[in-house]
Nucleic acid binder design. Structure first.
Length: 491
RNA sequence: CGGGGUGUAGCGCAGUCCGGUUAGCGCACCUGGUUUGGGACCAGGGGGUCGCAGGUUCGAAUCCUGCCACCCCGACCA
């Protein structure tokens, strides 16, 4: 392990890339744009899955699994949907290889062309709605509330670990309802769940909003989203929830008999978050020393590092360490006791800081004498020495304190980097010199949105749900506007 | 698909201009020892089709030709 991470202030994206690799979260794989998620990174994903999955189940959803391959024809059933995804689909055309003529490996067997080519799912609306057609006959079959954990493939041109990869892991919820109101309520409910997860588990403050037409999910009537702000002043879309109206029901002919005996198309929603959240987690909290993880998602919450004077002392130190560890585990805290003698304490300190372990306990000969331990927290680097007996309670409380401190820090950053502007000069100035979210009036036209994007690289992240109604004029065109919308440069 | 760059040990690089011992350095790795309160030190050791294929030459990592791969910057996106 070589020392020193690039500094955020020198090169933010180099810092991010290096951090992901050095902290053992993920690495590139031979196929461009696809990544290996390493055990430490995957542990974070598992914690995210566990937290979200519980929230889904608590709101009546169940998991299922739909296939990776989708008949090509399905994709074209919903016009907007095809258009949105056609450019980035991986296509399976053959089902067999054979030895090459020159004997040096394998080639695609031209005889084995598929009659109908298959698409590797970029998202599953089409297969799922095609299936729902058979599952739904009556209002008694509704609502249908299903989620799946899966991988999807979108053939991206430019990729970055976690933030944008050709293959990524996510969950996608797909629900069907008897009424428009119910489907809309579901869409909002899931948005709320994502926001709660981001804020409570990831310690990531987010802004809930609705997308403009140009940013909307292909095939949706409305796309809601949560947007987070990263430390470099760029926005990250952290989750989306779509009200699909009857678009997919119509495309796949999913009708149900209502209570009055009539036949109606069902109303749909879909919603998802992906491994991109890990990228957001990293970029929101971490510092020049490495990851800073919120205790709720940290694979290891507490690490105990012994400081030895001679090998014989390890026994006593280990005894003390194990006692503390077991008390912490009783409180539901995950602990690692690192008794390797192949690395010095200083090396370990740096290592666990790089990996974002929220709390470190050091125990040395001095502590053994005094019956104390040293407790250091990752978020503030503060150290305190406490009596052994008090340590478990202190640490238990520290978990909550660190969790909320990280959240508050991110919230303060966002608040100090959210700027309301009324002129286009100001708008450009803020984007250029300060970054962050910019709140400004917008005339509601795609033309204006597009021009602003071309001129400033900033997009409308969302129309915030809590935006106040106020008369104003568009920052670009001067035309009348009823509310301010959220602009930023984004990932 | 345009513009730029790079391929030499697991990683990061030097050597290439100007061909000439056995291809070198740092990190990592292995062995032994001394160490351990903020990234230890000493000694020894292993590891290479120099991206691939041709060519020039007594001799090629180095020169020539062709190919391949990857990275960065621009047009798309959770």
């Amino acid at each position: 392990m070589s020392k020193g991470l690039p500094k955020r202030s020198d090169d933010y994206s180099a810092w991010y890339n290096e951090l992901v690799k050095r902290a053992d979260l993920a690495e590139n794989s031979p196929v461009r744009g696809s990544m290996v998620i390493k055990p430490y990174g995957y542990s974070i994903w598992e914690k995210m899955q566990a937290g979200l999955d519980k929230m889904f189940k608590d709101t009546g959803h169940t998991n299922a699994y739909f296939p990776l391959f989708i008949p090509k024809s399905y994709l074209s059933r919903e016009a907007d949907h095809v258009e949105g995804f056609a450019k980035e689909c991986a296509v399976v055309t053959h089902y067999r290889l054979k030895k090459s003529e020159d004997g040096g490996g394998v080639v695609v067997d031209p005889e084995a062309r598929l009659e109908e080519e298959l698409i590797v799912r970029p998202t599953s609306e089409t297969v799922i709605w095609n299936t729902y057609k058979n599952w739904i006959q009556s209002y008694r079959d509704l609502p249908l509330l299903i989620n799946q954990w899966a991988n999807v493939v979108r053939w991206e041109m430019r990729t970055r670990l976690f933030l944008r990869t050709a293959e990524f892991l996510w969950q996608e919820g797909h629900t069907a309802h008897a009424t428009k109101a119910e489907a809309e309520a579901e869409t909002i409910q899931m948005l709320e769940i994502y926001a709660e997860f981001a804020e409570k588990h990831m310690a990531l403050p987010v802004i809930k909003g609705v997308k403009t037409e140009s940013e909307r999910f292909a095939g949706a009537v409305d796309t809601y989203c949560i947007e987070a702000l990263m430390q470099d002043g760029k926005a990250l879309q952290a989750g989306t929830s779509h009200f699909l109206g009857q678009n997919f029901a119509k495309a796949f002919d999913v009708k149900f008999a209502n209570q009055e005996g009539g036949l109606d198309y069902v109303w749909g929603t879909s919603w998802g978050v992906s491994t991109r959240l890990i990228g957001g987690l990293i970029m929101a909290h971490s510092d020049d020393n490495g990851l800073v993880l919120p205790p709720k998602l940290a694979p290891i919450q507490v690490v105990i590092v012994p400081i030895m004077k001679g090998k014989d002392q390890l026994v006593q130190l280990a005894d003390q360490a194990n006692k503390i560890a077991s008390k912490l585990r009783d409180k539901g805290i995950s602990v690692k006791f690192d008794d390797r003698d192949t690395h010095k304490p200083g090396w370990k300190f740096a290592e666990y800081e790089l990996k974002g372990v929220p709390v470190r306990i050091a125990i040395g000969p001095r502590d053994l004498e005094n019956g104390t331990v040293e407790i250091a927290r990752r978020d503030t680097f503060e150290k305190q020495t406490v009596q052994v007996d008090e340590a478990p309670e202190v640490i238990f409380e520290l978990m909550d304190e660190i969790q909320s401190n990280i959240y508050n820090k991110a919230l303060n950053f966002r608040e100090s980097h959210t700027t309301e502007v009324s002129t286009y000069d100001e708008f450009q100035d803020v984007l250029e010199n300060k970054g962050g979210f910019v709140l400004a009036h917008w005339d509601g036209s795609s033309e204006t949105e597009e021009r602003i994007k071309e001129e400033t690289k900033a997009t409308i992240r969302s129309i915030p749900l809590n935006a106040e109604e106020e008369a104003g004029s568009c920052v670009y065109s001067g035309k009348p506007s009823k509310k301010k919308v959220l602009f930023a440069r984004a990932y």
